[in-house]
């Protein structure tokens, strides 16, 4: 089972990442589940938010927050100073961080994990003209993690955001997918 934990701040669309990955996986014939953790009072802008996505070949019965995820998507690197962001992450786990700085510069380098920095905010500003990088993070994550079909991700985005907004977000996602492939080369699965 793929267990993905998403860290962000209220307003960054972290729950939407979980939702879109779940929709894309289901479109691809897999079972999936997505949900937020809204402890601390819930949906407040700027507050640390966690969202979760499980993907499996079998129906998913687990109803609790994941304890040992195998992937992390971090939309805001400053959360590393606020919480223990790697908590429970399995050895060899994949970590995608939105930042122009390297994991070393961020103080986030860990030998036991595969950590990748990705300039998601820059791509979002260029294409969407807004610092909302959730669909960009999806594209980069899909390139790094493997197991997602680009077509299914496109369908998920247009399903959630019909019309021009969806088209723009698809462009952002695909750009990020290609950029991540170029940046990380043979490391991409």
């Amino acid at each position: 089972m793929k267990e993905i934990r998403i860290h962000g701040r209220g307003g960054q669309g972290s729950v939407v990442i979980a939702e879109l990955l779940a929709i894309a996986a289901y479109e691809d014939g897999l079972y999936s589940q997505a949900f937020p953790y809204l402890g601390g009072g819930g949906e407040r802008r700027g507050a640390p938010v966690q969202a979760f996505c499980r993907i499996d070949e079998e129906p998913i019965r687990l109803k609790y927050r994941m304890i040992e995820p195998n992937c992390l998507i971090i939309q805001d690197a400053s959360l590393n100073e606020a919480i223990n962001i790697f908590q429970g992450l399995q050895k060899g786990g994949l970590v995608l961080v939105n930042s122009t700085k390297s994991p070393e510069e961020l103080g986030m380098a860990r030998p036991e994990y595969k950590i990748y920095s990705f300039p998601a905010a820059e791509i979002a500003l260029e294409i969407l003209k807004k610092p909302v990088m959730n669909t960009v993070m999806i594209g980069a994550f899909a390139a790094l993690a493997g197991g997602f079909k680009l077509q299914c991700l496109k369908e998920a985005i247009i399903h959630k955001f019909p019309g021009e907004l969806g088209e723009k977000n698809i462009e952002a996602m695909v750009t990020a997918y290609r950029t991540a492939q170029d940046m990380f080369g043979e490391e991409v699965q």
Binding site: A22, Y26, Y31, F35
Partner: peptide, 10 residues
């Protein structure tokens, strides 16, 4: 609450 209301499933 949340476990059903805010969770996405097929």
């Amino acid at each position: 609450g949340f476990v059903i209301s805010h969770t996405y499933e097929p």
